[in-house]
Amino acid sequence: MRALGDTESATTLLYLPTPPIIDTGTPLSYSRLCELNGNHWRKILIILAKLQTTESTWRDYRDEQLLRQHEAIVFGDQLLTGHQLHIVAGKASWLRLGLDLQHFTPMEASGRLFRRENIILTPYPDYRQFPNALIDQLRPVIQAFRSGG
C-alpha cells in the first residue's frame, strides 16, 4: 500500500514510515482502522483530524471527513509531485525521504516544526511528541495553504 486517501485531490499529504493493516473488503473508516491497528493508529488519526478540521469539531471531522477530501497519508520513499502541503512526520520519515534538517527553517521556539516552502517537518504524530499546543501552531498554516494563502 502506498497511501490512504486520494493523493490527487488532497491538499495535505502526511508522510509516515509504516502503513496500517487495512481491510480491502470494507470502505476506509476511522473505526475500522483503529479496530485493525489499535491505539497507535487511533492517535495518528486523531492528530491528523485536529490538524485538518476547520468549522466542525475534530471528532466530527475524524468520523465523517478524514481521508475523504483534504488529506492523504503516504508511505512511499519520495515526496509526491504536486502543489500539496507535504507534512513529513518523524525523523525516520525525514531520513527516508532524504530531507536534511539544515535546509529548513524553524517555525516555532521549541524547534519541533520546520518548514521549507511547501514541506513541513514535524514530530511523529503521538501525543507526547505532538501535543495540542503544537497542533494549534500548525493548524493555521495548513488552513492558509488549503485556502491558497
Rank of each mutant, 00 (worst) to 15 (best):
S31F: 04
T18W: 02
K50I: 04
M1H: 11
Y127A: 09
F104G: 01
A10H: 00
A3W: 09
A10Y: 04
R32D: 14
P17T: 08
R42F: 01
T105V: 14
D126G: 13
R128H: 12
H40K: 13
K91T: 15
L51E: 05
E117S: 10
R146P: 00
T26Q: 11
L33T: 09
G90W: 12
S31Y: 06
E117N: 15
R68K: 15
L28K: 09
Q65N: 11
H70L: 11
D126T: 15
E117A: 12
W41T: 03
G82A: 05
T122H: 06
S110M: 10
D60V: 09
I73A: 10
L138P: 03
L101I: 14
R128D: 12
S56F: 02
Q69P: 07
I120D: 02
L36Y: 06
P27F: 02
R59K: 12
V74R: 00
L33G: 07
S56W: 01
Q52V: 04
I87T: 02
W58Q: 00
V141W: 09
D60M: 10
K43N: 13
T18E: 08
I135Y: 05
I73F: 08
Q143K: 11
S31D: 13
Q84K: 08
L36S: 11
P17K: 06
L138S: 04
L51I: 04
Q84T: 08
V141M: 10
D63A: 09
L80D: 00
S110A: 14
T54D: 14
F104K: 08
A109W: 10
I73G: 02
P106I: 11
F130P: 07
F114K: 02
S31K: 10
Q69I: 11
L121H: 01
L28M: 11
R2P: 00
S29D: 12
A72G: 09
Q84V: 05
D77T: 06
V74F: 04
R68Q: 05
G82E: 01
L36D: 10
R32N: 14
T105L: 10
D100W: 15
F145E: 03
Q129Y: 14
H40F: 15
N37V: 10
L79W: 00
P131R: 15
E55G: 08
L85P: 02
G38Q: 03
L99R: 01
I22A: 03
L79E: 06
R59L: 14
I46P: 01
M1N: 09
R59G: 09
H40E: 15
R112Y: 12
S93M: 06
V74P: 00
K43M: 11
R2S: 07
H70E: 07
R59S: 14
G25A: 09
L4C: 06
T12K: 07
L101E: 13
L45S: 03
G25S: 10
T54N: 12
Y127H: 14
F130Q: 01
R96I: 07
G76H: 06
D63M: 04
I73Y: 08
T18Y: 05
L101S: 11
A133P: 00
L97T: 02
H83S: 11
Y124T: 13
A92Q: 14
T53H: 05
S110Q: 12
A72D: 08
S31V: 06
H86C: 06
T57P: 03
D100K: 15
G148T: 08
V88H: 05
Q69V: 12
T18H: 04
T122N: 09
F104H: 06
